[in-house]
Simulated assay, not measured.
Amino acid sequence: MIQPNVTVTPAAEKFIKRMVRFSEHPSGGFRLSVSPGGCSGYNSEFTVVPAAQQGDSELLVNGVKVFLPAESRLMLDGVTVDFADTPTQSGLTFFNPNAAACGCSTSGDSAAAPAQATVSVASIARRPPVTSSH
């Protein structure tokens, strides 16, 4: 099975590790599904699962398992996965230096910037802290 040439930044690696460590499956892995769509070219979803699903490829990121379905492997080849936590966005971002940017708000005279997409983490439920009653 061909592994994609994916770069994971330290910020994305930290996020992925935390998602796995604090999940119901701390010995499992981070399953990242990327599909075509959206203005920037990517629709993405992630889950923490106990094991790879049939057809998934396993990518080790400093000891953390990242499971990639076949279509995601193709789309992520050459892409840098980062994590942004700013007042305007929070989530994984994907930077593809080989893709053209969205033409939604660019003029015909400007140079196209590489495509970028974001996956929001706002919908992730946080577990309440464990408290002891003495």
Rank of each mutant, 00 (worst) to 15 (best):
Asn43Ser: 05
Thr9Arg: 08
Leu74Asp: 13
Val34Gln: 06
Val49Trp: 04
Val121Lys: 01
Val49Ser: 03
Pro4Trp: 00
Ala100Lys: 15
Gln89Met: 08
Arg126Asn: 12
Gly41Ala: 06
Asn43Thr: 01
Ala111Arg: 07
Asp82Ser: 11
Met1Gln: 12
Gln53Trp: 06
Arg73Trp: 13
Glu58Phe: 05
Glu24Phe: 03
Ser33Lys: 06
Ala84Asp: 02
Gly29Phe: 12
Glu24Gln: 07
Arg73Ala: 11
Gly55Ile: 05
Ala70His: 14
Asp56Arg: 08
Pro129Leu: 00
Gln54Gly: 12
Pro129Cys: 00
Pro69Phe: 13
Ser27Ile: 02
Val64Lys: 01
His134Met: 09
Ala52Glu: 12
Thr47Ser: 13
Asn62Glu: 07
Asp77Val: 09
Pro128Val: 05
Cys104Asn: 13
Phe46Asn: 01
Val20Thr: 03
Leu59Gly: 12
Pro10Asn: 13
Gly91Cys: 01
Arg127Glu: 09
Phe83Met: 07
Pro50Leu: 00
Thr86Ile: 02
Leu60Tyr: 08
Ser57Asn: 12
Asp109Arg: 08
Arg21Ala: 03
Ser107Asn: 14
Cys39Glu: 08
Phe46Glu: 00
Ser23Glu: 10
Gln116Ile: 15
Gly41Leu: 03
Thr47Asp: 09
Pro69Trp: 10
Asp109Thr: 13
Val8Ile: 15
Ser33Leu: 11
Phe94Gly: 00
Ser105Val: 08
Pro69Asn: 12
Met1Asp: 10
Gly55Asn: 11
Arg126Thr: 14
Pro50Cys: 00
Val20Cys: 04
Met19Ile: 04
Phe95Asp: 06
Leu59Ala: 10
Asn98Cys: 04
